[in-house]
Amino acid sequence: MKESTIMKIHYGTALASVGLVAVHILMRLTTGFADSLSYENVLANYQSIPYVIMLELILILLAVHGFNGLRVILLELKQGRVYEKAVSYGCVVAMIVLIGYGSRTIIMTNMGMV
């Protein structure tokens, strides 16, 4: 992929995250801080489909943004053909693993597995 395409995604994910994280924080303010993290409330959040879609989006956006940012930092830290390949593929794999792991929680809740 062209570097300019990657960076457009980088800036785009950052901007989209600002909006979605704002909504996310506002939703948290609908209850007190302690209540927000109580077991039943967390489960209820995960079972509300629109909210869960938003959480999943934030997860994807920030995983893409964060791991691309990490790739940039690592590419600037050290150079070399093998190293740079490892960094690029490593970041994509880590991104997918993190999204998979986060999604797993949401999916398990909705399938009534917890």
């Binding site: 960076m7 590419l75 740079e84």
Partner: peptide, 9 residues
Amino acid sequence: IDESHGIWR
């Protein structure tokens, strides 16, 4: 200049 060690760094 649009490559991994190009302008975006």
